[in-house]
């Protein structure tokens, strides 16, 4: 439906290319993380600006969750810096973080209070409407289907209306209609100036919605730029973005 808008700011991700105003709302430089002998992340840098949507794509185990959870303050990097305190960043983790014994509304209300929302009831109602779970508001989360749980999980991350929002595979487990509803909501936030960084395995989703994609492979940032540029880099503009992406990784040995 909506075509990818022009990339705001610069597309520079690695190496701190010179940029004119405005400054990024979130900037990470040289993030590295090891788990034992395995390097989950190698010197990855990322900067994002107001109203920008950045997609992180890459194979399983590439380091997407590791990168996002470091930005979100859940994990600590072995090296590198993040410009923004984690408390100011909205976060939707890959695994639902909810209280099963509480109802949907109670979960939302609890986190709205912990986030110190000004209008707790209003925020809860907004998120119930957004997630399409208004009629299941008083059901316990443990009785919801996996996809509906993910809706609540996403909704909680969206409660606080932050300047920077991170989402780890938010659309996984959602049905197409709810996925569409989520994207509508996220686009609304982006239009209002929120910077969003999300990971996904839905490559078309990256192509359709992201201003910029960051491709991770084996913990390394192997590409950063607009989806269209990736197709051109591969020289396969006729194939579509997904085929270009697979070809790109294949050429690099992944």
């Amino acid at each position: 439906m909506i075509q990818t808008p022009a990339t705001p700011g610069t597309a520079a991700v690695e190496g701190g290319a010179e940029r004119s105003a405005p400054p990024p709302v979130l900037e990470a430089i040289g993030l590295s993380k090891r788990f034992g002998t395995r390097a989950a992340l190698r010197e990855v840098s990322l900067a994002t600006h107001r109203g920008e949507l950045v997609a992180i794509v890459g194979p399983n185990g590439a380091g997407k969750t590791t990168l996002l959870s470091i930005l979100a303050g859940e994990a600590r990097a072995d090296a590198g810096t993040v410009s923004r305190p984690a408390a100011e960043i909205g976060w939707v983790p890959q695994q639902p973080a909810l209280y099963g014994r509480l109802t949907v509304a109670e979960n939302l209300r609890l986190f709205a209070r912990l986030e110190r929302c000004d209008d707790v009831a209003g925020a809860v109602d907004r998120m119930l409407a957004q997630s399409g779970l208004a009629e299941r508001a008083s059901d316990r989360v443990e009785t919801l289907s996996g996809g509906n749980r993910q809706r609540v999980n996403v909704a909680i991350g969206l409660l606080s209306d932050p300047e920077v929002l991170l989402l780890d595979e938010p659309s996984t487990a959602l049905d197409p209609r709810q996925r569409e509803r989520l994207w509508e909501f996220l686009r609304g936030l982006v239009d209002a100036g929120t910077a969003i960084v999300y990971s996904t395995h839905q490559v078309q989703e990256a192509e359709r919605h992201a201003h910029r994609v960051l491709v991770l492979a084996d913990g390394e940032a192997v590409y950063s730029g607009s989806p269209r540029d990736l197709e051109e880099t591969v020289g396969a503009s006729g194939l579509g973005f997904e085929a270009a992406f697979v070809e790109f990784l294949r050429r690099r040995g992944h």
């Binding site: 303050g73 984690a86 408390a87 100011e88 976060w91 983790p93 973080a97 909810l98």
Partner: peptide, 13 residues
Amino acid sequence: EENAFRRLVRGLV
């Protein structure tokens, strides 16, 4: 177990 701990200690408590 509910994964809530990480969410909570990210600045909420």
